[in-house]
């Protein structure tokens, strides 16, 4: 009698395993809404949405609670603008997303108690053109809205720095984002805070 039972299940099992491994490579894809405050599953050892949101909220809260932008000797409303960010890291980043988020958070925190000026090239050019058009009579102007372009009391700016280390299969990236407010009359730094994040990545055996 031919006894093949011990062999056939082994081969069958191996085939099932091979098929499972093969199909695991082409499993279904993800397409769903995710929490922007959750760690990014994509990875990449770079600043993520969670970091941008947290740093903007923390900075706005700290700046608001400092009272710097709401307390003046003669009860005048403080004017300030955000000059932008400089990226000194090794990760390209859309700086505007951080600045816009911070500005939004400051508006939320301080409401009408501060005056945020638009000092961007686009903003200033739009103001200049519109004022010229109104003054020349090319377009109608609201007489009650006539006034001078406001000067700024303070400027806020940020710098992104990093320290990346690679060794063997591991890479770590430490990011430090510093925000500073400077008094534009005295050139004195009047407020500063920072945000840190660190990431660790391991290279797969299939990567070079």
């Amino acid at each position: 009698m031919f006894h093949h039972r011990p062999v056939r299940p082994v081969l069958l099992g191996l085939l099932v395993l091979a098929s499972a491994l093969a199909t695991s490579a082409c499993a279904g894809t993800i397409d769903r809404r995710v929490d922007p405050d959750a760690p990014d599953e994509v990875g990449g050892a770079v600043l993520q949405s969670q970091d941008i949101r947290t740093m903007a909220e923390n900075m706005a809260r700290d700046l608001a609670s400092s009272g710097l932008l709401t307390s003046t000797a003669d009860n005048q409303t403080v004017t300030f603008h955000i000059i932008g960010m400089e990226n000194q890291s090794s990760d390209v980043i859309n700086r505007e997303i951080i600045i816009s988020k911070l500005e939004t958070q400051l508006f939320k925190a301080l409401g009408g108690r501060i005056r945020v000026l638009d000092r961007s090239g686009v903003g200033l050019e739009a103001v200049k053109r519109e004022r010229e058009a109104k003054r020349s009579g090319a377009v109608a102007g609201n007489a009650g809205k006539r006034g001078d372009v406001l000067g700024s009391d303070y400027v806020l700016y940020g710098v992104i720095r990093d320290r990346v280390q690679q060794g063997g299969k591991l890479k770590s990236a430490y990011y430090n984002v510093v925000f500073t407010v400077t008094d534009l009359e005295t050139d004195q730094k009047v407020w500063q805070n920072d945000y840190d994040a660190k990431f660790l990545s391991e290279k797969s055996v299939i990567s070079r």
């Binding site: 091979a18 491994l21 093969a22 695991s24 490579a25 499993a27 994509v42 990875g43 990449g44 050892a45 890479k171 990545s201 391991e202 290279k203 797969s204 055996v205 299939i206 990567s207």
Partner: peptide, 21 residues
């Protein structure tokens, strides 16, 4: 620039063809 690799992708590249990654 992303070092992250899923386990399934690594297994497929090691057990199957490296060109699947």
């Amino acid at each position: 620039g992303n070092w992250q690799t899923s386990g399934g992708e690594a297994v497929a590249a090691i057990v199957g063809s490296e060109g699947s990654k």
